[in-house]
Design a protein around this nucleic acid. Structure first.
Lengths: 121, 121
DNA sequence: TTGACCGTACTATATAAATTAGTACAGTTA
DNA sequence: TAACTGTACTAATTTATATAGTACGGTCAA
């Protein structure tokens, strides 16, 4: 479900967070689906539970998941969260595109690249 | 020329580095143009000279600038550097686009966004 | 009701990364 | 010579990251 890459410069808690956020916003983790428990995931990834907890806490603060006391953590699919994510990604897209244009890459080259992507169902 | 954002999670030396790299690859800092001296920039940004030095050292190692002993640091515009930068940005573009597609944004919406960008001459 | 889960909240510790401070040396230039 | 340049150190500090261990209250099924 989540994999770690120790060559990644991002800290572990961040990799976990980014991984789940991506699963959630892509729909791979549906609304109200349960996330692995803190202890369970910590064991399967062979890392400290506190590191998972840090990721979960941040995700809850940012509205990606909610927790039910004694039961576990569950995915949110709040419209506001999705909209925020879309906004951030669009901003990234613009930033990257502007830099590419600065570097002499044409709009058509960029568009062709996007057009060539495989859209999974 | 370079501004710092203390709310940015990136370390200071990284912000400085990214800032100059962007100036260089965009051509805002032309080939063989001089960068501010380590001490001068440190003073104007009110940070430690060692932090600037760290950014400059990395930029030189990566081929973005070269230094002449006793004179200063100057911008490179090496083709290999430009190509590498283009490659990295293209990868970012693909990553961001794929996430947008996951979120239900259509290819056409993405392409329209790119098409709407102002190309500065 | 007991036992096994769940998230959460602590304290403490260890390590690495980032930043600051200060000093020093060699090359350049007016 | 004096003022600048990059560079190379050591040292100290702060912050971020990760681990370790303990504890508390809620949930749920046996």
């Amino acid at each position: 479900m989540i994999s770690l890459n120790f060559r990644d410069s991002r800290p572990i808690y961040k990799q976990i967070k980014d991984g789940f956020v991506r699963l959630i916003v892509s729909g791979a983790l549906g609304a109200d689906e349960k996330l692995p428990s803190v202890r369970e995931l910590a064991q399967s990834l062979a890392i400290n539970p506190n590191t998972i907890q840090k990721a979960y806490t941040q995700m809850e603060n940012e509205g990606y998941i909610y927790t039910v006391s004694g039961k576990g953590s569950f995915a949110c699919q709040d419209k506001a969260v999705m909209d925020r994510m879309r906004g951030e990604l669009m901003k990234d897209l613009v930033d990257t595109s502007l830099q590419l244009l600065d570097l002499g890459v044409s709009k058509n080259e960029i568009i062709d690249k996007v057009n060539g992507l495989n859209v999974k169902e």
